[in-house]
Design a protein around this nucleic acid. Structure first.
Lengths: 111, 111
DNA sequence: CCGAGTGTTCGATGAAAATCATACACTCGC
DNA sequence: GCGAGTGTATGATTTTCATCGAACACTCGG
């Protein structure tokens, strides 16, 4: 039979149901910004939650991924014991054109 | 002689010195989002701080304008006893192309 | 020179959000 | 079925942020 997880599938919010305020709030955090950027530079479904280089414990990390899911930014799927991620580029771009590009390609000012 | 204020001129931050995180954080607040939107629909320098329809006291309002100034979103000038505002559209657009348009023209999802 | 109008500053308060430590749930290789 | 690896849930702590009230500063018209 098909290999399937007995674990509860994570709840996802489609970008179309996300308000501007929620989208901005989700991105207005240094840790989540790092996650999104690192995710954008990786192949889809290639990164598990624990594979990101952020200075927080795994509980906080789990929380941040929940926020990103709720903002329609990230999709997750269970793969064995790991939960792998994908940036919802096309869907999010359709809802908020240019926002991801901006966040990904705008360099910080010189101090 | 030229009419001049003896009041301390407000400190302004140019959008070029603003980080993505700061810009997003400034916009990720319901009150400030309202201010920016209302400002976008008005003639430049036509709105004093107190002329906005937001449900906060004047102390909080003053704080929000300080944040908007710090994010390079708003420019202020003293005009008599009032402090009048202007949305820094061109400059902010040059630094964060599309962000203001997005914030101003993206409708909220149907509940 | 007063008084009304307008904003800012300060200190305190309260609510929201991030974080942690711990305990739990699930998957898989051995 | 154990045990390691991975992520979630819960509860407590901390930090951050928005807010308010009151006091203060400035401008202008009388």
């Amino acid at each position: 039979m098909a290999a399937s997880s007995h674990r509860a599938a994570p709840e996802h919010t489609h970008p179309d149901q996300v308000s501007v305020l929620t989208a901005l709030s989700a991105l207005a955090d240094p840790v989540r910004l790092t996650l999104v950027r690192e995710l954008a530079g990786s192949t889809e479904w290639s990164r598990s939650c624990g594979s990101f280089d952020v200075p927080v414990g795994k509980a906080a990390l789990s929380h941040h991924f929940a926020v990103l899911r709720g903002a329609g930014l990230v999709e997750q799927r269970d793969e064995g014991p790991k939960r792998v991620n994908r940036l919802r580029r096309t869907e999010f771009d359709a809802r908020f054109p240019g926002l991801l590009d901006l966040v990904l390609h705008t360099p910080d000012p010189n101090p």
